[in-house]
C-alpha cells in the first residue's frame, strides 16, 4: 500500500520552485508494550501531579517554565507560547549547497523521502539529477506543522531525501587531543592494527545486519501466546590476554584463517 504524504512544500529554487510531498523514510519496527499493574494486570494510567502534595493537576492549570538558572525559571503562559509559533508557509528555503562530507553524521536526525507534487515530476527528477551530478547537499529551512525545521536535501538513487538536522547548539566536538606518551602506540602496533583493519574491510551492506534481539523477542511473545516456553541459549565468550602487539598478531592470524576457510 502506498504511503500517505505528511506534508506538501515548495523548494525555493530561484524562479523555479519545485513542489514536493514529504513521506517518512522510517518504518517503525520496534515492539511496543503496554505498562500493566503487576498484580491485577490492569493497564496503568499516567497522572500529572504536584510533586510536593501528590495531588492531581488539571490540564488547564499546567504550564511550561523555562529555566534561567539553578532553581530559577520563568513561567510562560499559553498565549505567550502561541505567539512563538512560526507563521505557516509552504516555502522550503535553500540556504546553501555544500559537499556531502561537510555535514558530519552527528548532525543527522530524521530522514524523509520527497516525492514530486502533482505535475512536478519533470522538475523533481531534473533537480535530483543536478544534485547528484554536483555531488552536493542543500541546507534547507522550513516550517512544517507549526514547527521550524532544518534539513539537508540530497539525491539518493535518483530520488530526493530531506534529512532533518540537529541545531548548532546541540552538536559537540572535541579538539586538542594529544595522548600522553604512555598511551601513544608504537609504529609496529599501528602497522599491525592497520593490517587487521584491512583484513576485515568490506563494503557497507545494511541487508547483512538483522536485529536478532527483536527476532528473539517476537519469537518469545509468539511462544508465550501459544502457552509454550523458550529456553535461553547462551554462548560463553573468550578473550585473549597479553601485550597489545601479541594480541594484534593473534587477531591477524585468526582473521587470515577465517578468510582461507
Amino acid at each position: 500500500m502506498p504511503a500517505r504524504a505528511i506534508w506538501k512544500g515548495e523548494l525555493q529554487l530561484g524562479k523555479h520552485n519545485v513542489g514536493v510531498k514529504f513521506y517518512s523514510a522510517i518504518e517503525d519496527r520496534s515492539v511496543h508494550f503496554h505498562l500493566l499493574h503487576d498484580r491485577d494486570r490492569a493497564p496503568v494510567e499516567q497522572h500529572i501531579v504536584r510533586k510536593d502534595t501528590g495531588e492531581d493537576v488539571p490540564k488547564e492549570q499546567m504550564r511550561k517554565a523555562f529555566s534561567v538558572g539553578p532553581n530559577t525559571a520563568v513561567i510562560l503562559q499559553p498565549e505567550e507560547l502561541q505567539e512563538l509559533v512560526p507563521p505557516e508557509s509552504r516555502d522550503i528555503e535553500l540556504l546553501r549547497f555544500v559537499p556531502a562530507g561537510a555535514v558530519g553524521d552527528q548532525w543527522y536526525e530524521r530522514p524523509y523521502y520527497l516525492g514530486p507534487d502533482d505535475g512536478q515530476a519533470d522538475d523533481y527528477f531534473a533537480f535530483a539529477e543536478a544534485l547528484a551530478r554536483k555531488q552536493v547537499i542543500g541546507i534547507s529551512r522550513w516550517v512544517m506543522r507549526k514547527k521550524r525545521y532544518l534539513g539537508a536535501i540530497s539525491a539518493v538513487e535518483g530520488y530526493l531525501v530531506m534529512t532533518t538536522l540537529r541545531r548548532a547548539e546541540q552538536v559537540v566536538s572535541f579538539s586538542g587531543i594529544e595522548p600522553a606518551k604512555s598511551a601513544t602506540p608504537q609504529a609496529n602496533e599501528l602497522k599491525l592494527a592497520e593490517q587487521l583493519v584491512k583484513s576485515i574491510e568490506a563494503d557497507f551492506d545494511p541487508q547483512q545486519w538483522q536485529n536478532e534481539y527483536r527476532e528473539r523477542l517476537c519469537k518469545l511473545i509468539e511462544a508465550k501466546a501459544r502457552g509454550e516456553k523458550i529456553k535461553p541459549v547462551r554462548a560463553p565468550k573468550k578473550r585473549a590476554e597479553g601485550s597489545l602487539a601479541d594480541t594484534l598478531k593473534a587477531s591477524l592470524a585468526a582473521a587470515r584463517e577465517k578468510k582461507v576457510a
Partner: peptide, 9 residues
C-alpha cells in the same frame, strides 16, 4: 513542580 505518576486503572 509537577511530575508524572502511574496509577492502576
Amino acid at each position: 513542580a509537577l511530575g508524572r505518576q502511574y496509577h492502576c486503572s
